[in-house]
Simulated scan of single mutants.
Amino acid sequence: MTKPRIYTMSFASVYPHYVAKVEKKGRTKAEVDEVIRWLTGYTQEGLESQLERQTDFEAFIAEAPRPNPSRRSIKGVVCGVRVENIEEPLMQEIRYMDKLIDELAKGKSMEKIFRE
């Protein structure tokens, strides 16, 4: 079975789309970075290093220093699929990120996004 294409795409190629999506709604690149850091445990320097290295999604998720345990409380639908029901762990992690970016673009407060 072949891997889904997203696994081999560089995270850096998708990242600008995340930023553009939230900036259209009045949010910022700094907030995108904050959401990604919260989810993965990367420092800002670590995140920037991954972007510079053109790391693919599979490695970006695998190398995440401290995936946030609260990510398991992320619920909802992304691309027509409930993130909490995704069985493949890597795809679920990618969809968690997509869901948080969607919530940021929809204007949710950081406290709600971070499930505080």
Rank of each mutant, 00 (worst) to 15 (best):
P65V: 03
E63V: 02
S73N: 08
I6M: 10
E111Y: 04
P89H: 01
A62M: 09
E45L: 10
R95M: 14
L51H: 04
Y7S: 11
D56F: 00
G76V: 06
P65S: 09
G107M: 05
P4N: 06
K29M: 09
Q44A: 12
R71N: 13
K3R: 13
D102P: 05
I61T: 08
D33V: 11
K3I: 09
P65K: 03
I86V: 15
F60C: 06
M97Q: 13
A62V: 09
I6R: 12
K3S: 11
T43G: 07
G80S: 10
V32P: 00
R37Y: 02
Y15W: 06
M110E: 01
Y42Q: 07
R5A: 12
V14K: 07
R5P: 04
K29R: 12
A20S: 12
A20D: 15
L47R: 00
H17Y: 11
V77T: 15
I36V: 15
F114W: 02
V19S: 07
G26D: 09
S73W: 06
E52G: 10
I101M: 10
I86N: 08
K24T: 11
K112V: 13
P69V: 01
D102R: 07
E45V: 15
A62F: 03
R71V: 15
G107D: 09
V19K: 04
K24H: 13
R115C: 14
E88T: 14
R37I: 13
K29Q: 14
L100F: 03
R72S: 14
E87C: 10
E34C: 07
T40F: 01
C79M: 13
D56A: 07
V35N: 01
Q54H: 08
R37P: 01
K21Q: 11
A62R: 10
E48K: 06
G107R: 04
K25A: 14
F11G: 05
Q44R: 09
A20C: 04
Y96E: 03
K108V: 05
I113L: 04
Q50R: 07
F114V: 03
C79S: 13
L100S: 13
K29F: 03
T55G: 10
I74K: 00
K75T: 15
V35H: 00
I86D: 06
K29E: 15
P65N: 06
G80L: 07
T55H: 05
I94W: 00
E93D: 14
R53W: 03
K24F: 04
K112W: 11
K25W: 03
L100H: 07
M91H: 06
R66F: 07
C79R: 13
K99T: 11
V19C: 05
R72L: 15
K29W: 01
